[in-house]
């Protein structure tokens, strides 16, 4: 009995290990399949875009496609630079307007707001993320556009127009269907993304950091500046990048207010613009020649590449900030 017991025990254990091992392998295989599927999907998308856009690169050089601003389906000249410009500028405006508001709101919710106010404020801001973009678009067409045209844009023009260089941004007749309006609507749309992530990141800052600063006699503002923000910096940067990524790809609302004209790049924010996503949405259905269709698919390819570049830059930015953060927290 005494001899057989350990044997039986060990064999049972071995059996369990085998069973567990099989389950493990199945589980591992399933997760691996998921991971491979995602990579394969991305590869298929890129391959398909490359394949379907091949006609355009036979029709004209890649340099002409990327760096000229004439997009003329009638005379078969396809240059996407104005679309790239419109996409990048409107997204950056959105990012610049949204980030301070979103981070400020996040700090207020975590550090200042009375407990009973936190949930309603967070909830309201996050509700903005649930609104479909077509509704933002309609709102922008009927409310925001006229407000920009009759109030905000003339105001900006009066106050900043005379300043050299900066004034160039506010030249031309305000029409309310322009790059600036698109930037404002994008800012509103990416606000909840940046706010929600920043809030989570700020909440992750250990209380010991805060207590340490307070113990040194710091005021609340000094504590936030010295302990919270350095600690949360990488996360906030990541939040902003996620917002930017969303802005780059946003289609419907931007299409409805940006004016969709790409004749020239003047540098003024009051000029109508065109984004890559809206060019695809506007022109795909009616593209009536092989070259035209493949030029539109090539826009999708360029948009994908730009989105990837933004994500890679974001990674680099976050890694560099995380490095500094460990230094600063040691000093703090």
């Amino acid at each position: 009995m005494q001899q057989s017991a350990p044997v039986r025990g060990s064999s049972r254990i071995r059996l369990d290990v085998d069973a567990a091992g099989r389950g493990d392998r199945i589980f591992e295989g399933a997760t691996k399949a998921g991971a491979i599927a995602i990579l394969a999907l991305l590869a298929i998308i890129i391959l398909l875009l490359l394949f379907e856009s091949r006609n355009i690169f036979g029709h004209q050089g890649i340099g002409q496609f990327l760096f000229t601003t004439t997009w003329d389906p009638v005379f078969r000249e396809f240059g996407v630079f104005a679309f790239i410009y419109g996409t990048v500028i409107s997204s950056v405006i959105g990012l610049l307007l949204a980030t301070p508001v979103a981070v400020g709101a996040a700090i207020y919710i975590v550090e200042y707001a009375p407990r009973w106010l936190r949930s309603p404020v967070s909830f309201t801001v996050e509700l903005l993320a649930a609104i479909p973009s077509i509704i933002y678009g309609l709102w922008a067409v009927f409310i925001l556009g006229p407000v920009m045209r009759f109030h905000i844009e003339p105001f900006l023009q009066t106050w900043f127009g005379p300043i050299p260089i900066v004034g160039n941004l506010f030249e031309g007749t305000p029409i309310g269907r322009d790059i600036l309006t698109a930037g404002v609507i994008l800012a509103i749309m990416i606000l909840p993304t940046i706010m929600a992530i920043s809030r989570e990141v700020i909440m992750q800052v250990p209380d010991t950091q805060r207590d340490g600063m307070h113990a040194l006699g710091a005021t609340k503002w000094e504590m936030i500046q010295g302990a919270v923000i350095p600690y949360a910096r990488a996360g906030i940067a990541g939040a902003a990048i996620l917002g930017l990524a969303r802005a780059l790809g946003e289609t419907m609302a931007v299409t409805m207010v940006i004016g969709n004209a790409s004749t020239s790049i003047t540098g003024s924010l009051f000029e109508p613009g065109y984004t890559m996503a809206s060019a695809i949405a506007n022109q795909f259905r009616e593209a009536d020649s092989q070259v035209y269709l493949s030029a539109i698919i090539a826009i999708a390819l360029v948009l994908l590449v730009i989105a990837m570049i933004v994500n890679i830059l974001a990674r680099i930015l976050i890694y560099s900030l995380v490095g500094k953060q460990s230094n600063s927290s040691r000093i703090g």
Binding site: V74, F75, R177, D178, T263
Partner: peptide, 25 residues
């Protein structure tokens, strides 16, 4: 063409978007 390179002006989405732009401008 169904889409052309417009020398001036700005675009509205579909008939409704053009009509709204005209009414607002």
């Amino acid at each position: 063409g169904t889409s052309v390179q417009w020398p001036v002006g700005f675009g509205g989405e579909k008939n409704a978007g053009v009509m709204a732009s005209v009414q607002q401008t």
